[in-house]
Design a protein around this nucleic acid. Structure first.
Lengths: 345, 345
DNA sequence: TTGAAAGCGCTAACAC
DNA sequence: GTGTTAGCGCTTTCAA
């Protein structure tokens, strides 16, 4: 309970070196304010004593902690089960490295963000999957703590989004153009559900994209053919089985997440269905596993890494006092690999 | 540059609510010390003003920041390219969630850890890939900042390791038992290189395991057949190609990392070699991609997730003042999937 | 070139 | 039940 009990402070160093605390501070921060010999002596004493300035005390004065927080709707351990976040974190950390910021990954406490805000020493937050106006996020706005939103709606703070609707549209369009009409749609649920109430979630946008394609093709949109599925391999397997059990015989499957699609491939094989001959599948995200699984998954590419980088860049700008909000919307791209038969749109 | 300029402090709330700062503090931390009506009034004022206690000021007093740091030899963005770390992070964060700690991922600054220590507000560090006595880590010991070591040697602080040698031995033994003698060994290099000088790195331990099996089988150990490879898909492809170009015709490949092995599968296919018929391959880690790639990779399982969990648990114990060091060594297990021909050892 | 004093925002004794 | 005071470890005017 007293790990720091013996922690050496600036005063200890000052005493031993027979100088004032000020001098010790200078020795570390503004060496040119001191005689070269004094500096060396102080540094030596500090090294001997194992002294290091306290980051916390420094932060109290400078109002800078040197790290930014990442907040997700679900606990970190849950969220990390999806490789999407691996790539996103990579992007964030590559920019964090450049800007010399640490990256603090935070989980909601008791399902809520509120306590997290007051417990976390960071200079700002990247918030994934919430809209700016979400109730949970309000305290940040009031407190004027810098934050940016990823995969969520925002106006007064910066945001990074992807044109989910266009991506989903493209994949549905592809299936419909190839004559499919019995299309199973596996939506996002749970782990990657969007926690807003306003209708801006990525899930909704992707759904809208699918729907739009159906309308344009004059195809029947059947709500029973739209199933929520956990964004995981097992979620995909489960829901595909459910669909078959309910008597559906899809010739094509559209998945709002790659992880789900990977599960569908597995399940299809277990049912003796050949992919893509009997069932064509298109996922979403272009996550790592989509290119590892066999057959390689056709999917909608989104620039995950860049989203992470941009989010951090926008945030550090806000932290530096720039209040202008910038809203980035990145493009998606239909990527036809081996779970679809033709390369034509 | 002044994001917090207008930040409401405890004093502001006190003034508006016409109470003392102490009362405000109590309203948040020890509500039972105050009249219920006072508490409510203060809370109301605080909410109106958008007040939230400053985590930094709190930390200065409590000597607790509520987060732990993860330190890796390479920049975070590099390290995250390997799914090993995804799983490790998952394990860490699952324990962090339980203990209500945040997880601060840190990159070396200018290739050194020293500046990171003094810039990062954390209660302790999990250090991956360094020995306790590594020069870079010394400042922590002097400063008596709690830390634990993962995949590195330690005595006075806790550590988490895996029996790398036994795992490597098992995989080499398998190959040798099946009659292979032309065995290419692709070691760890770069991103996952071990940054100690003393000879304790996981790479060395795995190499020792391979070597031991060769000795026991009376097989020729040829140093030219041991190549360092980046722990990445491309690293595996490259080095396998190099080996072929140098005239080697391996019938088996032992990889000290799964990512490398995945690359070898790809390269082998490109050379018209069938896996496992022409070349048998065994990786190391049982990382996510090993079970996704086709043919599914035979590998040495190590409990990555548990390593992460244990590291955090040991660390929080140290943080709570328990100075006893505990050294955990976890078991590995040979996992024969489809890049090897037989299931017999 | 160096030191004394004030204060960052908060909490914790100790009074009232 | 509520306020006063001191101080966490450091930086930073301002004087000397």
């Amino acid at each position: 309970m007293m790990p720091y009990s013996k922690r050496i402070t600036i005063g200890d160093v000052a005493a031993v070196a027979k100088v004032s605390p000020t001098a010790v501070s200078f020795a570390f921060n503004k060496p040119d304010q001191l005689g070269i010999d004094t500096v060396n002596r102080i540094r030596q004493v500090a090294a001997d004593l194992g002294y290091m300035p306290s980051p916390v005390a420094r932060a109290l004065i400078s109002k800078r902690v040197g790290s930014i927080g990442l907040l997700t709707p679900q606990p970190l351990s849950t969220v990390l089960a999806n490789t999407y976040f691996l790539t996103f974190l990579q992007g964030m950390s590559s920019m964090c490295d450049e800007q010399e910021f640490g990256l603090l990954a935070l989980s909601p406490i008791d399902g809520s963000l509120d306590r997290v805000f007051s417990r976390s020493s960071v200079d700002g937050f990247v918030i994934s999957g919430f809209d700016e106006d979400h109730r949970e996020v309000l305290p940040l706005k009031k407190r004027r703590i810098p934050f940016v939103v990823v995969d969520g709606a925002a106006s007064s703070v910066s945001s990074v989004n992807v044109d989910d609707e266009a991506g989903a549209y493209a994949s549905a369009h592809h299936m419909l153009s190839n004559g499919h009409r019995d299309i199973l749609i596996l939506m996002i649920e749970g782990a990657f559900g969007h926690h807003d109430e306003g209708g801006h979630g990525v899930g909704r946008r992707r759904l809208a994209g699918y729907h739009k394609a159906f309308v344009e093709h004059g195809a029947d949109w059947r709500d029973e053919w739209v199933l929520p599925a956990a964004s995981s391999r097992s979620g995909g397997e489960r829901e595909f089985n459910v669909a078959l059990a309910q008597g559906m015989r899809p010739t094509a499957v559209l998945c709002a997440a790659d992880a789900t699609a990977v599960g569908v491939i597995t399940a299809a094989h277990q049912h003796g269905l050949s992919v893509p001959r009997d069932v064509e599948i298109i996922g979403f995200d272009d996550s790592i596993e989509s290119n590892l699984v066999r057959p390689a998954l056709s999917t909608v590419h989104q620039p995950i890494f860049e989203k992470g980088r941009s989010a951090v860049r926008l945030l550090t700008r806000h932290i530096d006092g720039d209040e202008r909000a910038e809203h980035i919307v990145m493009e998606t791209r239909l990527l036809l690999r081996d779970t679809t038969r033709t390369r034509a749109g």
